[in-house]
């Protein structure tokens, strides 16, 4: 596979994830949640940045872009950018414009989601910036290599940090965390919680599998190919179960979109030795 083909897979997975995310935001907007009286009222959220922007010009621009009327236009513009990313020829000026515009849209939406946003938005931003650098008119094979390393290492950092944070937690080490999370209405699942109730060793196994696999995830970059593929398969299954059990759909697309970059880095490192 060449660099372009790796990027095509990243772009496809990223775009699918963004279609889901944007449609969710559109749905909430149509329900009035981004209006002045809604859950995500810009009039209130902007109070947090009032001290910085005040009545300045930037404040006014942000008001126009992020209040209820501006936000729907922003979402519509994001969808247009996504369509152009999928249909425009990579390395063309149209693709370059669409990808940089998408990055700005995502930055504004992320800023608007300072309450209620999650880690998948941040990984998606990392992917969007990398897609701009890697497939724009100014790209080169060297830049593409940097992008793959950037995405791959950010992904590895995410898994390792998460694993280390879990091993520091008593609830994770004791094996209670998985059951207790699945037992919530917010991120859990009634059926699975019922199945796991009272099964101490199963819970212990699940907690420690997540801890160990997350901490040692980056070793997939240097292990023999069949071990690396097994680690990535674990990651894929992990995110798939998180969708099914916890409803974390956006994480699945954002994180699996990093896997082609991880495979590139893995093969590149192995080709050096």
């Amino acid at each position: 596979m060449n660099n372009f083909e790796y990027f095509r897979i990243i772009l496809l997975l990223f775009a699918i994830g963004q279609v889901f995310t944007t449609s969710e935001l559109l749905f909430l907007h149509l329900k009035g949640e981004y209006s002045t009286r809604g859950f995500f009222s810009w009039k209130i959220i902007r109070l947090d940045i009032n001290t910085i922007t005040g009545d300045s010009r930037i404040g006014g621009i942000l008001d126009n872009l992020l209040d209820s009327r501006g936000f729907i236009k922003l979402l519509a513009f994001k969808i247009v950018c996504l369509i152009f990313l999928l249909v425009a020829a990579p390395y063309s000026y149209l693709f370059t414009f669409a990808s940089i515009a998408l990055v700005f849209c995502m930055l504004l939406i992320q800023f608007r989601s300072m309450y209620g946003g999650d880690g998948s938005d941040q990984m998606s931003l990392i992917l969007a910036v990398s897609i701009f650098f890697g497939l724009s008119a100014f790209s080169s094979p060297v830049i593409q290599k940097y992008c793959f390393y950037f995405i791959g290492l950010q992904s590895c950092l995410a898994y390792t940090t998460s694993g280390v944070a879990k091993i520091l937690s008593k609830k994770w080490r004791s094996g209670n965390a998985v059951y207790e999370i699945f037992n919530t209405g917010s991120y859990g699942n009634k059926t699975i919680a019922h199945l796991l109730k009272g099964r101490k060793y199963v819970n212990l196994f699940l907690c420690w599998t997540v801890i160990v696999m997350e901490i040692f995830f980056p070793i997939c970059l240097i292990t023999p190919i069949y071990i690396s593929i097994a680690i990535l398969l674990w990651g894929f299954t992990f995110h798939f179960l998180n969708v099914a059990i916890m409803g974390l759909n956006s994480f699945f697309w954002a994180f699996t979109a990093t896997y082609p970059a991880i495979i590139f880095v893995m093969l590149h490192i192995q080709s050096q030795f």
Binding site: Y159, S169, K171
Partner: peptide, 9 residues
């Protein structure tokens, strides 16, 4: 990147 840790929800 500290998802659901150290204090899981």
């Amino acid at each position: 990147w500290t998802f659901f840790a150290p204090n899981p929800g």
